[in-house]
């Protein structure tokens, strides 16, 4: 019986070296060689500075940018070191209250929105760092963006539709828009059209 413990200890040491060290090290080497961008977190730069990750959602509050979903990650939301959802159940008073609050805030921020309120903009994501909103969630915000930037809603809509990612292979997942990508495109488009963005608020 003692022999089993000695075998266990030796096998543990060997397998820790193989599967706990060599395997992740080798995979890191391979990943860094073949897919360095993804392996390092899909970082995104603008004007020479790293401004975020293409796969991680960020907190957006300024009216001239598209906003993401409510987030329960960290104190202010969108904290990748504190991921998670609200974990509130369907009959939770707190959930209903916070949904009401989100609806009111959305209406206040988007007085000219003509579309129905999209579900994703009033519910917290699972990770708290959801990088996407639904296309409906983006179109809903278009009139606000247009008025803030002094461009037409039509041109905002066309930027959105250029950045909608459909279902993978036509059937996996759901259509979505990456908020960071969309906001970068928005800044670029405004620069290109060279219209000075009037700020009225």
């Amino acid at each position: 019986m003692l022999k089993h413990f000695s075998t266990s200890v030796r096998l543990t040491i060997l397998t820790v070296v193989f599967f706990g060290l060599a395997y992740p090290f080798a995979m890191t080497g391979l990943a860094q060689a073949i897919f360095p961008n993804q392996a390092n977190g899909s970082l995104v730069s603008a004007s020479g500075k790293t401004i975020g990750s293409g796969i991680i959602g960020q907190l957006w509050t300024k009216p001239q940018y598209f906003h993401g979903r409510p987030s329960a990650a960290g104190k202010n939301g969108y904290d990748p070191t504190s991921t998670g959802g609200t974990n509130l159940g369907p009959t939770s008073k707190k959930l209903i209250a916070s949904t009401k609050q989100a609806i009111a805030a959305l209406r206040k921020d988007n007085p000219h929105a003509a579309l129905p309120i999209p579900m994703d903009l009033v519910t917290s994501s699972a990770s708290g760092i959801d990088p996407d909103i639904t296309p409906e969630g983006a179109y809903y915000q278009a009139p606000r963006i247009a008025s803030e930037r002094g461009i037409t809603t039509g041109s905002v809509n066309s930027i959105i539709s250029a950045h909608v990612r459909g279902r993978t292979f036509g059937f996996l997942g759901e259509p979505r828009v990456n908020v960071l990508e969309l906001n970068l495109a928005l800044d670029r488009a405004v620069l290109v059209s060279a219209t000075p963005a009037p700020r009225h608020r």
Partner: peptide, 12 residues
């Protein structure tokens, strides 16, 4: 607000 239950779900 109509639609499927998106509380605690990811858009993708």
């Amino acid at each position: 607000v109509l639609g499927s239950n998106m509380e605690g779900k990811e858009v993708r």
